[in-house]
Amino acid sequence: MISDREKNIVVVAASWLETSTTIISCEDADLPLGYIGTTANAIKLVRALCYYTITKMTSSHSSSPSDLLYSTAKRICSQVLQLDNSIRFAGLANHMGSLISYELRKGLVPLLNEEELKSYTLKTVLRMKTREDYESKLGDVIYTFALYKKIKRATIPLDHPNLAALTVSFDMAADHEGIIIDKILPMIRREKLLTTAVEA
Rank of each mutant, 00 (worst) to 15 (best):
T39I: 15
A146H: 12
T196Q: 09
M187A: 08
A90T: 03
S62P: 00
A73Q: 09
T39A: 15
A174E: 05
E177L: 01
I100L: 15
N85C: 08
C50D: 13
T72M: 13
M172Y: 08
S15F: 04
D171F: 07
P157W: 03
S3H: 10
K149G: 14
M57D: 10
I9M: 09
I43N: 13
W16Y: 07
P110A: 09
K7N: 08
A13N: 08
S98F: 14
I87F: 01
I2Q: 12
M172F: 07
P161I: 08
V80Y: 04
S15G: 11
Q79R: 09
N113E: 15
K56E: 11
N41K: 11
L147I: 11
P65S: 10
D133W: 00
S66E: 09
V46R: 11
S136N: 13
K129L: 12
Y52P: 03
K192F: 06
H176W: 06
I180E: 01
L147P: 01
T121W: 00
G97Y: 07
L17Q: 00
P32I: 09
S62Y: 05
M187C: 09
L83A: 05
K118D: 11
T21P: 14
I76P: 00
R5V: 09
K118Q: 15
S86C: 05
H160Y: 04
P161K: 14
D67C: 11
K56F: 04
S119H: 10
D171T: 15
L185W: 01
V109H: 13
V168L: 04
T144F: 06
G37L: 00
K129M: 08
A73E: 04
A173W: 12
K152W: 01
M187K: 14
K183T: 07
R88I: 12
Y148M: 10
I23A: 08
L69P: 03
G91E: 02
R88C: 05
A93T: 15
T58M: 10
E27F: 13
C77L: 05
M96D: 15
L81V: 02
D182G: 11
K137R: 14
E191V: 07
G37C: 04
I179K: 02
T155E: 03
A146T: 13
R105T: 09
L147R: 10
L68Y: 13
T39G: 12
A73I: 11
D67Q: 08
D133E: 11
T195H: 14
V168G: 03
M1Q: 12
N41M: 05
R88Y: 06
M128P: 02
E116I: 04
Y143I: 07
I184T: 01
S59A: 10
R190T: 13
D30I: 12
S71G: 03
A14S: 07
A42C: 13
A164F: 06
D28K: 10
K106D: 15
S15W: 05
R47D: 14
I43A: 13
D30E: 09
Y102C: 12
V12W: 01
K56W: 01
R131P: 00
Y70I: 06
V198L: 07
L92W: 08
R131C: 01
H176N: 03
K44F: 02
R189W: 03
A40D: 14
L158Y: 01
L185N: 00
L117E: 14
L166G: 00
L33S: 08
E6C: 06
P110N: 09
L31C: 05
D182K: 10
E18K: 04
K129T: 06
A90W: 02
R153E: 11
